[in-house]
Write a protein that binds this DNA or RNA. Structure first.
Lengths: 263, 263
DNA sequence: CGCGTATTTGAAGGGCCTCAAGTATAGTGG
DNA sequence: CCACTATACTTGAGGCCCTTCAAATACGCG
């Protein structure tokens, strides 16, 4: 009953190593928090840096990520997280996934009361936490540079959110899912993690929620892409076989797709 | 042919003043840029402040908003703008509307090359531009506070973008349009501008683009809401007659609406 | 006051959702 | 290490909501 026919099976022993159960840790050199970490460690040795930055704090699957310090920035070291926001009358809406090397909790860096955004671990993960205020031994000039960098990171996150908003509105379900796969792959690639064959950190249900589709539709789309030879799928294990085609589909101008009038 | 029946006409001479052709200017006291303006004017008189901040620069309808300074923040004083981002294979996607008193160009504050986001005036507008760097006579401590405030504004913008992402995915077209009207009204209200009866700054086409719907659908929805007495519509002129009902609809749990399974 | 743009309306079709089970996977505990 | 069980993933049929295409009308800017 496998309509994928003769494509290479994903579960051969040789392929086992390509699909580790969890997202592997990133090197500090590929982490978005690196610049801030370095500034926090200005003129101090590595030992001191380790004190300032909470390294490799573990988070259990399904556990909510809380900030220890009142104002701090968090980065994912291994695993993956999701950020969700409550909607007026129903289920929470996922607004972002956080892969290794990416920043979290920036949006809430200056919140006081109950945070609007809930961040939850999709699998056993490790996070690094860097306090934003009350940094010891900071000269005013250093503080100015640090805060400027913080502002730059925040605007970068804003730009990323707007990009997400743009391709997420792609015409049709196929365009959205293709864009999603390419987005995940590009983000893995930018952190020096395998980006052609990987394990999706999130269940179909979360993908559907994020893309504004029904869970069943996402399922059918995966099988459809698989059947067309664009990807290979086995549960959460994914191999991108034809990224160029996926890009075409994501653009909404796929071969047989009609033009859409959606403004 | 008007199925609105006996609702009060919107175009009576008495109502003319309630629907000025353009969005009226906000007071500085209600502007999101105020805090940064004040910090930029630390210890200097109002005349000096006027020098630092480019006040009331006019932008023609349809004209693109460019930053004069390499790094600066822009606020809308009167009128309205839209920010759009190109999509892989088609029309640009509108990611935000900017009403009087709101910030723009934060997302691109540190961009160097060609900006990804295009910001265009929806009507004749006035903007204020505040340079972010090279501020004259700034002590390091002042610079630190200024940059921290900048970071806070950026994270606030990120949070706003995530909120938008959340309610924009609302179940069904009705929920989205109801949410849209309430969002616009709330933003007018927070700037001390009339929020119960106002003129929409953008055409149907842009609303449809922003909400991920077809232009015709938005039209039909406006008439439907009108027919049910929830709002009164005449072109861009809007009166919210039953905000409570709109909130219910926006929640997706409207009286006759079935539950949705969209994850 | 006229022309261009924006808004409106109708009819028909298709894509995605809904409901309902069945199957496979992975996390858990013995 | 293996059985067990809860969760995640699939698959099928039917129907509604929204889109698409086409064209008329109203509004507003110059």
């Amino acid at each position: 009953m496998n309509d994928s026919g003769n494509v290479t099976p994903l579960l051969t022993p040789a392929n086992r190593r390509r699909f580790p159960p969890y997202c592997p840790p990133v090197e500090c050199s590929a982490c978005a928090l690196l610049a801030l970490c370095r500034m926090a460690g200005l003129g101090v040795d590595e030992t001191r840096l380790a004190e300032v930055v909470g390294r490799k704090r573990p988070v259990a699957r399904g556990a909510e990520v809380h900030r220890r310090e009142r104002r701090s920035v968090i980065a994912v070291r291994s695993g993956a997280l999701k950020s969700e926001m409550p909607r007026p009358g129903g289920e929470a809406q996922i607004v972002a996934f956080h892969l290794p090397g990416e920043l979290v909790a920036l949006a809430a860096a200056d919140e006081e009361g109950e945070p609007e955004v809930r961040t939850v671990a999709l699998m056993p993960s490790e996070i690094c936490e860097l306090p934003v205020s009350d940094l010891p031994g900071f000269a005013p000039e250093e503080a100015a540079r640090f805060h400027l960098r913080l502002a730059q990171d925040a605007t970068a996150a804003l730009l990323a959110a707007q990009r997400t908003l743009a391709w997420t509105r792609g015409e049709g379900a196929e365009a959205r899912l293709a864009g999603f796969l390419l987005d995940i792959a590009a983000r893995f690639a930018s952190r020096d993690l395998p980006a052609q064959a990987f394990r999706l950190p999130m269940p179909r249900r979360d993908i559907a929620n994020f893309l504004g589709l029904a869970e069943e539709t996402v399922c059918r789309l995966f099988r459809r892409f698989h059947g067309r030879g664009w990807i290979a799928v086995s549960g959460k294990r994914i191999v991108l076989r034809d990224p160029a085609r996926l890009r075409t589909v994501a653009a909404g101008t796929a071969a047989d797709a009609g033009t859409s009038r959606r403004a």
